[in-house]
Amino acid sequence: MAVIKIEQLSKSYGTVQALKDLNLEVKKNEIYGFIGPNGAGKSTAIRILLGLLQNSGGNAQLFGKDVYQNALRLHSKLAYVPSDVNFWPYLTGGEVIDLLAKMRGKFDSKRKADLIERFQLDPTKKCKTYSKGNRQKVAIISAFVSDVDLLILDEPTSGLDPLMEMEFQSCINQAKRNGKTVLLSSHILSEVEKVCNKIGIIKNGSIVESGTLSDMRHLTQTHFSVETKLSIPENILSDISGVSNVNIEDRHIKFSIESDEINYALQKLTQYGVINLNSNPPTLEELFIRHYSE
């Protein structure tokens, strides 16, 4: 059973179409990266999942139940981190964490203490006095404190420093090991690459690409940088079709190549005695830019 299942979801605000026939599925224990340009509809889709907005078509289900009818029961199984964190100015961070945890169900004070320590948060400060990053820490900690099955995170780390980013990733990995499911919407592609095992790219309200990262990598080119004993001729790769950005300097060649052609190209190069070989798989950023600029 899919934890999150969205079918042909549409949402319009008057004449503006925010979501158009969106299809998305997240299975149990998947860490799903939900990425897309600004204004593509990520937050809208998430808010529909949480029952904050009504849809204009299609349906959305969590744990096999419709999100709108069963919101109450479903919400005890999930934790949400919003993209724009606004808390009550005169409550402290610690109080907000306690409150939200109790509103979800169980509350584990040991876990709270541990997370506060890891994220280096001062829980005695009033929310009004926190910097943006610290407000986000409060939101993230309150999500991880509860022992829920699903985490819905909308750009949770956009203001965190690199150390905290690492802590966040280790929390996600821990959740993964504990069998939890995560829907992570983010612009930090390196983060998505590291923790997510499935990705969906949304553009103009629909999913334009989805699959595992390795599935998607087949669509773009890997970069190679190879050093050889013998000089490399100019036209060595010219009979291969899926090659680009070829740069040859005597015994050093750099090129980008489609995954199907890698084996053939390397066979050709080993004839010249390979000393050193560096390869970089296509980054998610390149994948993203390719989709975005189309």
Binding site: Y90, G94, E95, V96, L99, K102, M103, T124, K125
Partner: peptide, 23 residues
């Protein structure tokens, strides 16, 4: 200037009724 607060929420602050009361 602002004063510091408590690290832990009081026992009664466990639902939206308590939160609104606080406000």
């Amino acid at each position: 200037p602002h004063r510091k607060g408590k690290a832990n929420a009081p026992e009664y602050l466990r639902n939206v009724w308590a939160l609104s009361f606080r406000m």
